[in-house]
Amino acid sequence: MSYNVPAELRYSKSDEWVRVEGDELVIGITDFAQDQLGDIVYIELPKVGALITPGESFGVIESVKASSDLYAPVGGEVVAVNGDLEASQEPINRDPYGEGWLIRVRPSGAEEELLDAAAYTAFCEERGH
């Protein structure tokens, strides 16, 4: 099975994506991640104003059969949160790079080691898919 890995994004090894929008970064989980989890039933996101640290947990995401921490691919201050997801998590499964975005961050400059689309695709395949 092949997954949608948009070329213009960068990716963490914990399956989050990062998109540059002006001075800010938008963060979500990848198509691979949503497929592995299955139907998402719950998500816990930070509040606006919270500081996130690369490599550390900034939230929790749950499906019926799995629970996973969300790890910050970059550091910075949370400037917006996708509040719609509290009531309905379905967009994360349906449109992980669009409507299913999680948080918007004003970056501090600190970053995890991020992969480009080709490297991330290879990383997904390595894990048996």
């Binding site: 139907d39 039933v41 719950y42 019926v64």
Partner: peptide, 11 residues
């Protein structure tokens, strides 16, 4: 009962 919708129960 037959197989149940666990996603619905949780959402």
């Amino acid at each position: 009962v037959r197989r149940v919708d666990e996603v619905r129960a949780a959402r």
